[in-house]
Design a protein around this nucleic acid. Sequence first.
DNA 1: CGTTACTTTTAGCCATGGCAAAATTTTAAC
DNA 2: GTTAAAATTTTGCCATGGCTAAAAGTAACG
Lengths: 229, 229
Amino acid sequence: MAKSNAALIKSRLSAAHEDYLKAIYILGAQGAPVTNSALAEFLGVSPASATNMVKKLDELGLVEYEKYREILLNDSGRRVALEVLRHHRLLELYLHEQLNLTWDQVHDEAERLEHVMSDVLEDAITAALGDPTHDPHGDPIPTKDGRIAPVEGMPLSQAEPRQAYRLVRVLVQDAKRLTYLGSMGLYPNATVILSKRSPFDGPLLIEVNDEPQALDYRLARQILVAPAA
Amino acid sequence: MAKSNAALIKSRLSAAHEDYLKAIYILGAQGAPVTNSALAEFLGVSPASATNMVKKLDELGLVEYEKYREILLNDSGRRVALEVLRHHRLLELYLHEQLNLTWDQVHDEAERLEHVMSDVLEDAITAALGDPTHDPHGDPIPTKDGRIAPVEGMPLSQAEPRQAYRLVRVLVQDAKRLTYLGSMGLYPNATVILSKRSPFDGPLLIEVNDEPQALDYRLARQILVAPAA
DNA sequence: CGTTACTTTTAGCCATGGCAAAATTTTAAC
DNA sequence: GTTAAAATTTTGCCATGGCTAAAAGTAACG
Ligand SMILES: [Mn+2]
Ligand SMILES: [Mn+2]
Ligand SMILES: [Mn+2]
Ligand SMILES: [Mn+2]
């Protein structure tokens, strides 16, 4: 046979297919079952459109799917999803490190580039970055053979007061919020100390690299930290 | 008005639109009138498909077109074409210079990336390269405001024997032939001397950076040179 | 356990950008 | 000028990936 089955499948996948698979992976990684409506909302399409595409992905042998049930990636689908996610996060890091795009600019750019990147370019970027493991938001970059580091860290909202933590990951996606967090120095590897909690899920008083800052509780839940080394 | 007319038009253009406009520009720049069949062949689509798209481009106000006649870009269309061409050639150079792709790999990659590159990325690449004027094949890069340097150089096939020339541009597109030319050192800025012509449009004996080489006449016609400084 | 609210699928539509085959127009040859 | 060849357009088709509205299924509540 000239091509592997995997290569045959992959060559037929459009950007839409890839975004759906990646979305199913990301939603699944968040713990909850992947429903049609969650998928549709995540991708900004109608539920009818999501049903339509999920049926196609099932026929292509990329997801396990039965009407009205949870949508599950199978091994083939997960492999594709992780490859696209690798592209995305490598691109985000490259754009940030080598081309000085800000961490709130890189997502939208990577969202398009991820679908048109050749293997040669993927390898060139990997080499230029020295085989990196995490993107600018602290998200782990899947390896070329489809492995991905487990989620580390706990929400800053649950940190012990007065302990020094290292910021490991920012789950915030919104560009404006990222800009704001960056203005406080809340990037991966920043040193963060929780000085004081407010009652009623109120704002946290924190120190970021020794600077005092106030941080909204909802944002603090989306910032993951680990005890400082 | 919130957006300029130009911005309104541009936001609706697909990769297909952009490739057609770029193709019309490139074919036109080669001197001959742009016919439907030439356009179809250049893009690898059927003549019916080309007709269909050209009609759309006419309706969008990007080309001047009347049935059975030559296809002409108007100012709007030329502006778009030059912007896409700028993307293409900036990308080719960036991929070659910064990511070490070979000059025969960059075209296919740029052909896809050119359509999904934001203004921010374009500017970042421009800055990283120091506002370059020519791509790895010696093709001029249009400026951001849509100007493009005129074609310089004469075909190597018409060079004066024993004179030192500087290679300025390689019109060859085929990846295999580019690899071959590269193996002889026939890159832009190489010093080339025509040692001897063969009769009957036969091969040329040349010196490339002081190394003797034999070069097919048909390839020599696609290599442009200028008298060495 | 039946009714209601919610989710999901189905049905039918649309725009895009391809194609092949047939019809038409232009061009070239006589 | 007529005719044959070549180029171009028209016609009708297809796959893709959206959408809305209507139908159907699932789940939750009293
Ligand atoms: Mn995407
Ligand atoms: Mn990220
Ligand atoms: Mn292109
Ligand atoms: Mn080029």
